[in-house]
């Protein structure tokens, strides 16, 4: 697959369709490739595409679409929702992107492998449904299904919402998985005290590294309120634990109706806080109150939270439902 993508990238660079390529490059370990920009055919030697290329590249297109010429960008099915959402919010220019939709069998989660006993990982190879780990303290073989990211267990399906061409591994027919809201439902049935304790426990681990915000394609503000000294909000989130938790609540409100459920926030959190569940709760509520809505499925529909129709649910019903 990787070879096919490199070949196409070279062709598109060569014939002048694009002037740069946004993709992933080898990291220092075999399981941490990173987003990278390639501007020459030679530099593409570093290009990788494997199960660890979970990083969603759409947010990079905000900066890249301000540059001269088109950029080739590789988007997995779920990444295309984020891309569309950014187009909808006028943050990226569709015309400045050449999109190759790549297929995805679920992104791998190295932490899951570690939890399952892989220690001192040196190399990981994928072969269809099995993943083999070569490690200092004993090699391991896993079923792929057991070591994919939580977000991929709630996969929205194989279809790309936007693309210029599809790679050969794209499977547009691959169905969405069930049970997207099962974890949310577990939290919903807790009584308020229990729920508060759950989130307090999760959020208290936050070290305010801002990785979640920085990776989030919805959190793409030119100047985030939490960085803006003009509004007396900047220092607020750091003041104490209570306000620190407010950071997450406020962020969840800011991305409500815009979050595509790409799951990047939880993927990058070094403290393994399941942030995406806050957002998924909003998505679930929006679906029940206003009818099914998927942010980023298109670029022109009106999002329920910034729309107003006479059929809108009454506040009292929202309140009743809690």
């Amino acid at each position: 697959m990787q070879e096919e993508l490199i070949r196409r990238a070279k062709e598109l660079l060569g014939d002048g369709t694009v002037v740069r390529v946004m993709g992933w490059r080898k990291g220092d370990l075999s399981f941490n490739p990173e987003p990278a920009l390639f501007e020459t055919e030679e530099s593409l030697a570093e290009f990788v595409y494997d199960g660890f290329c979970g990083a969603n590249l759409s947010k990079y297109m905000i900066k890249l679409s301000k540059l001269e010429g088109k950029t080739l960008v590789f988007l997995k099915p779920c990444d295309t929702y984020s891309f569309n959402q950014l187009v909808k919010e006028h943050r990226v220019d569709r015309e400045k992107a050449y999109i190759i939709g790549v297929g995805c069998d679920g992104s791998l989660d190295v932490d899951a492998m570690k939890e399952k006993g892989a220690k001192g990982i040196q190399e990981i190879t994928e072969d269809g449904d099995t993943v083999t780990v070569r490690a200092i303290y004993g090699d391991k073989t896993f079923d792929r299904e057991d070591v994919i990211l939580e977000r991929c267990r709630a996969c929205k399906g194989g279809a790309h919402m936007v693309y210029d061409e599809l790679a050969s591994n794209a499977d547009e027919e691959k169905p969405a998985r069930d049970g997207r809201f099962s974890l949310v439902e577990k939290i919903e049935v807790m009584d308020p005290k229990e729920r508060f304790a759950f989130w307090q426990n999760e959020l208290s681990r936050c070290i305010r590294c801002n990785a979640c915000r920085n990776v989030c394609p919805a959190c793409s503000c030119i100047k985030c309120v939490f960085d803006n000294d003009r509004y007396d909000t900047a220092q607020k989130a750091n003041a104490d634990t209570f306000e620190e938790q407010m950071f997450h609540i406020i962020r969840a409100f800011h991305v409500a109706g815009r979050c595509t459920d790409c799951g990047e926030c939880s993927r990058v959190c070094p403290e393994h806080i399941p942030l995406h569940l806050l957002n998924r709760k909003f998505i679930k509520d929006i679906n029940t109150f206003y009818g099914d809505y998927q942010a980023g499925a298109d670029t022109d529909s009106r999002a329920p939270l910034t729309n107003f129709t006479t059929e809108d649910v009454e506040p009292s019903i929202v309140q009743e439902r809690g």
């Binding site: 919010e89 006028h90 943050r91 793409s220 503000c221 030119i222 003009r230 009106r302 910034t306 107003f308």
Partner: peptide, 17 residues
């Protein structure tokens, strides 16, 4: 709107009655 901080995202335009 403060042009220095505005994303141009259209959220405000959509809700303005």
């Amino acid at each position: 709107s403060n042009p220095l901080f505005c994303n141009g995202c259209s959220a405000c335009e959509k809700v303005c009655p």
